[in-house]
Each structure stands twice: as structure tokens, then as C-alpha cells.
Write a protein that binds this DNA or RNA. Sequence first.
DNA 1: CGCAGTGTTGATGAAAATCAATCCCTGTGG
DNA 2: CCACAGGGATTGATTTTCATCAACACTGCG
Lengths: 259, 259
Amino acid sequence: MDTPLTRKLNNFVRLSAMDEGLIADVLEPPRLVEARVDIVEEGEIPRTVNVILSGWACRYRQFEDGRRQIISLLLPGDCCDPHIPLLDRRDHAIGALTQVSVARIGGSAMAEIMARSPTLSLAFHREALAGAAIQREWTVSLGRRSGAERLAHLFCELHARLRAVSLADETSCPMPLTQPDLADALGQTTVHINRTLQDLRGASLLTLKGRRLTVLDSASLCQLAKFDPLYLHLGASRMASRHALPSGPDRPGVADRLP
Amino acid sequence: MDTPLTRKLNNFVRLSAMDEGLIADVLEPPRLVEARVDIVEEGEIPRTVNVILSGWACRYRQFEDGRRQIISLLLPGDCCDPHIPLLDRRDHAIGALTQVSVARIGGSAMAEIMARSPTLSLAFHREALAGAAIQREWTVSLGRRSGAERLAHLFCELHARLRAVSLADETSCPMPLTQPDLADALGQTTVHINRTLQDLRGASLLTLKGRRLTVLDSASLCQLAKFDPLYLHLGASRMASRHALPSGPDRPGVADRLP
DNA sequence: CGCAGTGTTGATGAAAATCAATCCCTGTGG
DNA sequence: CCACAGGGATTGATTTTCATCAACACTGCG
């Protein structure tokens, strides 16, 4: 069966038909969650794994004073913590950004297929490690990348991740995030995101309209973002590493085209 | 055998004497790494797990233009990625911040003890999940906490983590990080860290001298930082949750004492 | 002694937040 | 079909936070 989950896991290990069958067996019937509704709430005791089948969600944390930080973005095929049932309580919430279809895998069913198929076990482990690597990259972005670099980097990442589950073409992909969403993901304000976005458009790096992102100048965008797809661990084979900056700090540089 | 590693894992599950013995058996003889030297380098193919026995290290990433971001801090008892041998190549480096003593566990030995002892397997898994949770919290800090909040939060976290391995007392702990280190961890400049530090000292929240941090007003520090130790998943039992903000956005607030 | 890394200070400028209006879609109900 | 509501996008003016630049003091150490 071809689901975003199997497509994603196939980036990490080649799954056998039997593996895919095992997954299909344990995936409970999906439920729909409307945009802005929580899929799981903070403080819950985790018992099941949730898999995103369609739509976008995010982990987030909100302070009492209203400040919100999106901690990570969950795209189709992503599973919310394959191993989370091991922990005590959830320290963050997961919310739907668009309408989302999620399927659960019971904690014990999960343990069972991991025990049954070493390949699946490896796949889920790698999925988790890749997720951790993405989280580290976000730390780098928030800590040391400028506004324009952050935005560019996020777009590069999302495009690559969507390609890995066949939801993007060579130069464009869906982009349902609103500017407030982008602001909360990148630790900035919507006003500032808006202006940075205009800079990127002005430099002819991309267009963004109708909830769709089109990358006009991939090489420059990657270079500006210092985007190196290695951290996604999606398997060198299919990664368009062609734009991975061949380094050399001294090149024309898009930065000149930005204000 | 009592090592920082077993002390740390005991926060997640109670290890049997046999489990501790298994660990002792697979820990290779430690090696010393001097401050500012890499323990593992970016791009390496991971084969072994490294455990910090003493000293502090960090994951970090450095751009060609000199900007450096410390991605996470590794304290005694922390292991650098118990499951990392599953991935292709390292996307970041790990460097020693002080002189560090590290012991390796061979990849196959690791797999073997995990297979042999379900308790150990669970412990290492939880260790990894707790590490991921810390990484998420850093994302929140870098994205939405102000300079003073960030610094306060980091100090709260480090103090709690050190307590979990019996390296801190009730109100103080070693703090070998230099101001440049703090700056690279918190995504700011050393000048700004210096000034923020003065604010925290000025508000009588802490003292920091001779590479030792002393918390003078733990409740206020936690409140300022919005520090909730839940995310460390160190086991409710021993966590000093007493200062976990009982919430209520309307209280005196230390913030008033800061400039 | 002198050096290097660290900590500190002041002056200045850039990046981003904040405040406050619009404007513009898009879906909804009359 | 149109008016309306509401979220999203955009703009300008202003303030705050933080970075940058440039000294200089302190400390441990060869």
C-alpha cells in the first residue's frame, strides 16, 4: 500500500511488500482534525503514535502571555514520535495547521511490528533520528541565521521534505503556512516575516501565492540559506544535492541583491 | 559501578546491578580530550557511541563566515547518540568545551546489551527522547525567549541536569562555560551576554564567579525563565518541581527588577 | 614579562519588535 | 448576487533589542 508514511520510510530503508503490509495492518482508520485544533495536548500521557496522512501539523508551545513557538512542522508521512509511549508525559502540544488526516498506531501494535520486522524497526529509528537532526538544524537557524536566511532555509527544507514524499515537483510545492505561522516557526513577528518575504521576492528567488511556493532560483536560495540537505538524511541517491553549496565564501552571492 | 552514565540512566529506569555490570563491561577505557578539540568531526561515519564521563562538551556547527552555534551541551553522563550508528554521516561536530574524559561503546557491543537487557534498552531510549525534548526546549528559547529569559532558562536547565547526576548541590553547580560559549549557545553576542548577566546579578538572582554558578533566588529565576522541569523527563520523584511556576500570569514578577 | 583568552565598558548602528492603520481576499449568509 | 465579517497581508512610524566596533582591564601561565 502506498501511503505518505511508506513513501517516507522508503527514504531510509527499502521496505519489503511485507513490511508495507504490516504497516497497513496496524494503521487505525484515519480521523480528520480541523485546522487550529489540537491533535494531542500538552500533559497527555502518550499511548499511541500518530501518523500524518495528509495536511500539515506542528508541535508548538504557547506561553501564558501569548507568545507561541512552533517547535517543528509535521508533514504527510511524518509520525509524531514513534517511541513516545516510552515517556511519562507530553511536554508540548501538537496542533493541526490545516485540516489534517491522522491515523493512530496503538502502542502495543507498534512494539509488535518493530519486533517482527528488523527493517521496519530500523526505518522508524532512522525516521526519529532524522527528526532530531531537523530539530538541531532549527536550533542553528534560530540561533545564527538572519531573517532572510531563516526563511530561505525553511523553504528549502520543506521543499526537500515534500519531495521525499512525492508531494512537490522540481520547483514548487504547497505552502499552506500563513505569515503568522511562519513567524511563530521562525521566532519573529508577522510584520517582519512579511518584509523579509518581500525581499526574497524582490531578489527573484521565489514566488509565494495561492498557498503555493515556487522556487525561481534554487541555487541562489540554497546558497543564501546555507542549505545543505545532508541533515535530512533522506538518502543521497534522491537528494538534489546539486545545489549544496560547493562552499567558497567568495562568490557573487545573492545577499547583494537583498536590501 | 557508579558512573555518571549509570546515575543518569537511573533517572529514567531503575537499573539492576547486572545492568550496571553490562554497561561497565562495554565501556572502553576512557580517553582524554583537551578543551577546544573535536571529539567527533562533521562528516564522519558514525560507528561508536561516545559517553562523557567528566567535563563538558557540545554539539556545534560553524559557518564559513565564523558564526558558530552550539546546538546542545553534553554533560557528564550524556551519551552522544546511543542510536547514531544507524545513520549515514554526521551532520554536526562534537567538541570539548573543557577537558573531557570520553569512553566509547562499540556499535555492536551497544546493540548487544540493548538486546540482552530490555531495561537498558528502555533506559537508552528514554535518554534519547529526553535529549530530543531538551532540543525542542532550546528551539523555544531561541525563538521566543528574551535575552534574560534565555540565560535564566539555560542556567535552570543545567543546574537540574547536573543535579540528576549528582554534580550539583541545592543552590550551586559548576559552570565552566565562558561568555563566548554562552553567546554561541544562546545565539547572541558575548557583549550582550555580558550585559544580560549583569542584569541577572543586579536583580540578585544569581552569582557567577570562579566557574561556578550560585542561584540566589531560585523561585524568581525559574519564574523569569518560565522554566518547567517536566521536559527534562528526569522522573517526577526527584525533580525539584517546587519552583515550577504555579502559573498565573499576574504576580509580582522579577522582570520588574530588570532594566 | 608578555601573551592570550576572558570579562567589561562605551558609543554607534542595524535588525527586529511594536503599534496602528489599512487593504484584500474568501467564505458565508441574506 | 451582493454585503459583510474575519483572517490574512501589507504599510508606515516609532521604539527596543541586539550587534558591531573599539577600547581597556584582569588573570593565569609559559
